[in-house]
């Protein structure tokens, strides 16, 4: 696993630097940010969608199921528990260029076995420390 470096860029904006990639994460203006990039929650949902998509694409390649231009549309709902807000519901529609017919179930199984879904389903142990 490569190091994921998250650096403050001012306000609520952070740059994410991993391997030779860099992108910005920010909050929307109505959430107090400057909207220079997707929000952390949107990145999480995007990670989920692209991971599901990658697993489906891999299965489709093997099974020779057309999948060029596959699209996943996702959204999420939040819930407030006391002072804590969390994503309570993740919803996605997956569109393939052709109906996979009898292999639909296998396509869905491939997507549902992705690393991000498995992680969200189980919840990882989180260990943060203040490095000063």
């Amino acid at each position: 696993m490569d190091l994921v470096n998250v650096r403050h860029e001012g306000g609520l904006c952070f740059s994410v630097n991993v391997r030779n990639h860099r992108f910005l994460v920010d909050m929307a203006e109505d959430e107090g940010g400057s909207d220079k990039g997707p929000s952390p929650a949107e990145i999480l949902v995007a990670a989920f969608g692209s991971c599901v998509g990658a697993h489906i694409a891999r299965y489709c390649q093997t099974a020779k199921i057309p999948h060029e231009g596959m699209e996943l549309n996702l959204t999420f709902q939040t819930t407030k528990e006391g002072t804590r807000i969390r994503i309570s519901n993740l919803v996605g529609d997956i569109s393939l260029p052709q109906d996979p017919g009898p292999r639909s179930k296998a396509v869905m199984s491939a997507g549902e076995n992705c690393i991000i879904r498995n992680t969200l389903a189980r919840g990882p142990e989180i260990d943060l420390d203040l490095d000063i």
């Binding site: 699209e71 549309n73 996702l74 959204t75 709902q77 519901n89 919803v91 996605g92 529609d93």
Partner: peptide, 14 residues
């Protein structure tokens, strides 16, 4: 819930 809304109205999320 969003999924229920999509199903009951027969609308895709997009």
């Amino acid at each position: 819930m969003i999924r229920k809304l999509c199903k009951d109205c027969s609308f895709k999320l997009k």
